[in-house]
Design a protein around this nucleic acid. Sequence first.
DNA 1: AATTGTGAACCTCTTCACAGCT
DNA 2: AGCTGTGAAGAGGTTCACAATT
Lengths: 209, 209
Amino acid sequence: MFKKFKIPDATIGRLSMYSRYLIEADKKGITTVSSQHIAKATGVTPAQVRKDLAYFGEFGTRGVGYNSRELYNYIMKILGLNKQWSVAIVGAGNLGRALSQYKGFNQRGFNISCIFDNDPKKIGKKISNINIYSFDSLAEKVKDFNIKLGIIAVPASAAQEVADKLVKAGVRGIINFAPVNITVEENIILRRVDLAAQLEYLTYYLEEI
Amino acid sequence: MFKKFKIPDATIGRLSMYSRYLIEADKKGITTVSSQHIAKATGVTPAQVRKDLAYFGEFGTRGVGYNSRELYNYIMKILGLNKQWSVAIVGAGNLGRALSQYKGFNQRGFNISCIFDNDPKKIGKKISNINIYSFDSLAEKVKDFNIKLGIIAVPASAAQEVADKLVKAGVRGIINFAPVNITVEENIILRRVDLAAQLEYLTYYLEEI
DNA sequence: AATTGTGAACCTCTTCACAGCT
DNA sequence: AGCTGTGAAGAGGTTCACAATT
């Protein structure tokens, strides 16, 4: 049905933005939106919006636009967000703790099921009702909770080891917050988020002047 | 000297990765590295490494490679990291608190100078020695600390207002963690980091199967 | 022999412009 | 008249392949 062929990575990020606008529009009672409206709200061009949507089907009506609610539902389905996802966070440091409490995940259907750490002082404790388990029990818990998504929030030196553990346990998609390149087998989806690099992007441009 | 013309955004992110590898290599006593080495460590192609570096000059020696320490220094200078940067975080929620304690920023020369929030219960308190100030004192503190970089970690509904405040106070670069599109005047560098969208990227690909 | 630096080829993504519907 | 859907054109980024250099 959907996902006929290779589509740009950036499209997926934009779909996420579109869906956020659409749910807001729907809440406000705006039943029909145009690519123009979506574009303005999300900071892209109208042609880009139409192109992005066209990868997956024909959701609009010529001369009219798109039905907000309907398009929202389509996009959520395309993104795989028409169900709940269990997520494991590895690393109960500052970042891991913050991510485990981050409301933005829940709002989009992500459920942080458990946290893993190797610090005996942290194991057995909870972070806002989420249990912290040892690395040793990772495989077991990942299976118990049917976790397919993992977030790596450990120091760079431990990131590869953690990734290997997650994959072995059955995790299929990983976000790596450690500032290091890690490798996984081909059928695992890996994404790297480098927080310091984001600031460096800013300083690069600021230094120019 | 550097930054002759428009270079790909992605190049900047890769420079950041290269520099991290180079400092490690230098620590291990590896004085000379090839584009091959850098590529392998950072998960890109050797041609990409050479192309990225070539935007800024000729740092290598044909037949030999690059001097680790020297190339590291060049890259850090290109990224504007040959000095300390003061950063303000707006929003003392989970994310703001975590970011203010995140070691990765300090390691790269970023100094979180202060945190802003509008919750009276938080104002006046500290997060690991960093003061939390009210929104009202933002302009004053940004000037006092000579802050040029801001991190927005407030709810989506407040993000635009905060951005405007930061810009007005003299901040030149902004990272927006709120899941909403905000706009700033043209000479301000804006970067959006959408954490939930990262997970959605994973679920998109996992649903395909 | 090894490795850089780079023009050209290639590939990917975005924008344009307009036919096709309502 | 207004807006979508899309082939074609354009822009941008990556890889190739090889001359230049040590």
